[in-house]
């Protein structure tokens, strides 16, 4: 691939890369810094050569840039002693790498005006730990599969599932919990009765 072509393809992905940077840093200025780091790294000659050697075509440019963004952000995090607020949150909260057992809520949201929920949803997403927001973005906005996310983030697929499912549960809890929009609007469940938990004993 010609250098100019590679640069053009990379710049075509500027918006998703910036979006990812923004979700990670939660700060527009830091996001710009991160994006510039990403492009500096991605377009270094040696690095871009390795991209081609690995047989990544045009379609792989976006994932390639995401991978660099991820590693750059977390490298910064490890090196930085003065972590931004989001990072304190990242380090302070206990991490769980197992998916939540609880199934999704069964609210019938078909008639709900989601635009009215957007602010609450954004706030809920904003409160997520960065590694949760990251997978949520790659899954929700970029439409990537678990395996693709795992390659970008550099963790096992099971970890991606855990983070993603937990992030979704947290967000769902925020909007449909006791104080959430769904409850406030007294939406009814799609099912007449809650699904009772089925124990192993019952099953047997």
């Amino acid at each position: 691939m010609e250098r100019a072509e590679f640069e053009r393809l990379a710049l075509d992905q500027l918006e998703p890369v910036y979006r990812m940077a923004l979700q990670l840093t939660r700060n527009p200025e830091q996001a710009q810094d991160l994006v510039q780091e990403v492009y500096a790294r991605a377009l270094e000659r040696g690095v871009s050569d390795r991209f081609e050697e690995r047989g990544r075509g045009a379609d792989g440019v976006r994932a390639w840039l995401f991978t660099i963004a991820h590693h750059t952000f977390y490298s910064n995090l490890r090196r930085g002693r003065h972590a931004p607020t989001a990072m304190a949150e990242f380090f302070d909260q206990e991490s769980s790498e197992t998916p939540p057992d609880e199934p999704p809520p069964a609210w019938d949201l078909a008639s709900l005006d989601w635009e009215q929920v957007d602010d609450r949803l954004k706030a809920a997403i904003d409160r997520l730990r960065p590694e949760y927001r990251e997978v949520l973005l790659l899954w929700g906005v970029e439409g990537l599969k678990y395996r693709e996310i795992a390659e970008i983030v550099g963790v096992p697929i099971g970890t991606v599932m855990s983070r993603l499912h937990r992030a979704r549960k947290l967000v769902a809890d925020e909007i449909s919990g006791p104080d959430g929009f769904v409850s406030e609007n007294r939406l009814r469940t799609a099912q007449p009765d809650p699904v009772p938990p089925v124990s192993a004993e019952q099953q047997s």
Binding site: L14, E15, P105, L109, L121, G140, V171
Partner: peptide, 28 residues
């Protein structure tokens, strides 16, 4: 548990909502 179909629908809707909420960014 056929009623769990609603849970799946919820997740699909949630994904769309998350996408809407997160896709907006003002590129400098």
């Amino acid at each position: 548990c056929p009623q769990d179909e609603a849970c799946i629908r919820f997740e699909v809707q949630l994904r769309e909502a998350c996408s809407r909420a997160m896709c907006q960014c003002d590129l400098p």
